[in-house]
Amino acid sequence: MTMNVGFENLSIRSKTGLYPEEKLLGNHFDVSLKVAFPITEKIITDMNETIDYAHLVTITREIFSTDEDLLETVAQKIIQKISNVWPNINGIDLSIRKLKPLTLPMVGSTVVELRTGCFETRTSLTEVSMQETNSQSIAITQSKIAN
């Protein structure tokens, strides 16, 4: 069995960004994170048997405080730190959104997502719909060719 622990929509203000105006003014970020870890059928009754989501928030804030140039760097450092603290996890699903990026005022947000372990094969609903549509189109085309 696997259990997921994490948080959604953590609001962070940071000077993470490549451009001088981002370093000066900072950006607003929205972070969501899930960590999967193995469990047994035994009921969890002790914090040492789970992942402390408050610690996950602390790690995320700590990494953002370094004001890296790239969100990709921040994402990888968060993943590395979590993996070092909890080496037996099954995977991490991390999404970082830069809200209303200063250098792209016409864009609502930019996003970096990083998935490891059991989350790597996760398919979004949009991807599933596109795969189903493509499969149906292929089947219709093959039927027309056969006739």
Score class of each variant (00 low, 15 high):
T66W: 04
L104W: 03
S95R: 11
V107G: 02
E120P: 02
L94G: 08
E120T: 13
V85C: 06
V74P: 11
R122F: 04
L99E: 14
D67K: 14
M106F: 12
C118H: 00
G108I: 01
W86K: 05
Y53K: 06
G117V: 01
P105S: 02
K34V: 00
D93H: 10
L114N: 03
F37S: 06
V85T: 15
G117K: 02
E113A: 12
A36L: 01
W86C: 04
S65N: 12
I44W: 00
I79P: 00
S95K: 12
T66R: 12
E72K: 09
C118A: 00
D69A: 11
E62I: 00
R97E: 13
R61D: 07
P105Q: 02
D67I: 02
V85W: 00
T73C: 09
D69H: 11
V57A: 14
L114V: 09
V74Y: 11
K81A: 13
T40F: 04
T110N: 13
T121K: 12
T121Y: 01
R61T: 08
Y53H: 11
A54P: 04
D67P: 07
L70W: 03
N90Y: 03
I63L: 04
K34E: 08
Q80D: 14
T123Y: 01
V57K: 14
I96C: 05
E113L: 02
A36N: 03
I82L: 02
N88F: 05
E113F: 03
S65Y: 07
L71E: 08
F37L: 06
L114K: 11
R97H: 13
I92R: 09
T110C: 14
I59W: 04
K100C: 06
S65K: 10
F119G: 10
T116G: 02
I82K: 01
D93P: 01
W86N: 09
I92N: 10
T73S: 14
A75C: 08
C118D: 02
V74C: 11
Q76E: 14
V111D: 01
L104S: 14
